[in-house]
Simulated assay, not measured.
Amino acid sequence: MTAEDELDVLKGRIAKAETEMEAWRASGPQEKYLEAFCNVESLENRLDQLLRARAPGAAPDRPLAAGV
């Protein structure tokens, strides 16, 4: 999987997680909403890491873990 592919997959996962989070916020128990919120935050942090690693002059990072 290329870096671009990984970014696209991650963006799709974020969009799906945000939809799920909003559904739980509107109609579900607070625990489920908070769990979904944390999932969105985690995915967004991962996306930020990937984007920073691609920035010009970025220091080499450890290898990306598959499926994270």
Rank of each mutant, 00 (worst) to 15 (best):
K32Q: 04
K11M: 06
V68S: 13
A59E: 14
V40K: 00
A3K: 06
L43Y: 11
A59N: 13
W24V: 00
F37G: 01
Q30P: 01
A58P: 12
R52N: 10
V9T: 04
P56E: 06
E44K: 15
G28H: 02
E41C: 09
G12E: 07
E35G: 02
K16Y: 05
C38F: 06
V40N: 00
I14R: 00
T2K: 07
P56M: 15
L47K: 13
E18M: 09
E4P: 00
Q30M: 10
G28P: 12
N45K: 03
A58N: 14
V40P: 00
Y33T: 05
Q49G: 12
V40M: 09
A55R: 11
R52A: 15
D8R: 11
M21G: 00
R46K: 12
A26M: 07
L64F: 05
A66Q: 14
M1K: 09
D5I: 09
A15D: 11
L34M: 15
L47F: 07
Y33I: 03
L64K: 05
A53Q: 10
A23I: 03
L64Q: 08
S27A: 15
N45W: 05
A55N: 04
G12Q: 13
E22M: 14
D5Q: 07
P63A: 04
Q49D: 12
R52C: 03
C38A: 15
S27Q: 04
E4K: 03
A59M: 12
E31F: 02
M1W: 03
C38T: 10
M1L: 02
L34P: 02
